[in-house]
Amino acid sequence: MRVNDGREVIFFIDTGGSEVALDTEFAKELGLPQFGEGQGTFSGGEHAAVQQSRIDSFTIGDWTIKNLPVVSLALRQLSEGLGVKRIDGCIGTNLLYHFLATLDFPNGELVLRRKTAKNLKQFAAESSGKSVAVPFWIASDHFMVGWGRVESLPPALLFVDTGLAGAGAKLAEPVIKEAGIKLEEDRAFEGAGAGGKLKIVPYTVRRLSFGDIREDNVAGLYDGPFPWENTFGFHLAGMVGHDFFKPYAATFDFERMRIFLRKKL
């Protein structure tokens, strides 16, 4: 990926985020203008400053996007947890929305196609009988929400956060307790979120479903209050994260509001 002056940069893809985001120090290196500052809510309910800005150009693969609104926040502190030397930014849902986008986790690829009737029809034909479609809708400006199930509890709403690294689930504390999930305090460690340092406690979800997709013994993490549990006027049981989707190519169809999951064998 390249930003403004053509330098190559490292971004991660985070459907839990909205706009394209740049690390604060990287934004300073680019000399970007600032149009204001707000406060974002992140893991564990932590808050951090978020600056509004824009970049002249953003090149990803064969696509170049001009005059793109961005935000900046402290992202490089996430680098170690993501297993890379340095993170410069992330791609959020609001950019993916403009494409028929596939996150092919097994092959490590992001495929962006024009969101045309022809491409949608072709994809539908190619995926017929090979993918599982999970309906979703968007809460607020970017939260992709769909029905899932935790253990043997009744169906509940979960949101898709591919930026949740090192785990396949992050559940609200009441859901953890109701499902009888044990927090493994003896394995707790310190991690970093966009809002700062966090105590992270692992656990295992014996059965986790999203739509008709089910995975067993899914790694989960608890890092404090789940800040979006009751934010949108309905109850969110938690999120499904990166590790849940690792066996799949996930295609986001924002026209028909479906996530197509195809397992790679």
Rank of each mutant, 00 (worst) to 15 (best):
L112F: 07
F244E: 04
S127D: 01
D243E: 14
A156Y: 03
S18A: 15
L158Y: 02
T15N: 00
M257I: 00
I65F: 06
I181R: 09
A172G: 12
A139P: 04
G108T: 00
T204Y: 02
R114K: 13
G148L: 04
S131R: 06
G129P: 06
D104R: 11
L100S: 09
A49T: 15
V50H: 02
D5Q: 11
V9P: 01
F58W: 07
A156V: 15
Q34E: 14
K28E: 12
K246T: 15
L120V: 14
P247D: 03
F26G: 07
P202E: 09
Q39C: 02
R2M: 10
G148S: 08
W137Q: 01
E255P: 02
T41F: 01
M144V: 11
A27T: 07
L100R: 11
D88Y: 12
I138G: 01
F26Q: 11
W137C: 00
V201Q: 08
F232G: 02
V20F: 02
R113P: 04
E151T: 07
H98P: 09
R2F: 05
D212H: 10
I200M: 10
K170I: 05
N4T: 11
F260Y: 15
L112G: 09
I200F: 02
M239K: 14
Q39S: 13
M257C: 05
F58E: 04
D223T: 11
Y248L: 01
A139C: 07
D186N: 13
I91T: 08
F245Y: 12
Q122G: 12
L198G: 03
V70G: 01
I181G: 07
H142C: 03
V205M: 10
S18F: 08
K264R: 14
A27V: 05
K264M: 00
E215H: 11
G191A: 12
A101H: 06
N119K: 04
L30R: 10
A192Q: 14
R206E: 11
L73D: 03
S79K: 12
K28H: 15
G196L: 06
G36K: 10
K66L: 09
A250C: 13
G44W: 03
R86L: 08
W137M: 05
V134S: 04
L157V: 11
E184N: 11
I13S: 02
H235M: 01
F159I: 09
S18M: 06
A49P: 10
P174H: 10
K263H: 12
V9W: 01
L208A: 06
V134M: 08
S152Q: 11
D141H: 13
F42Y: 13
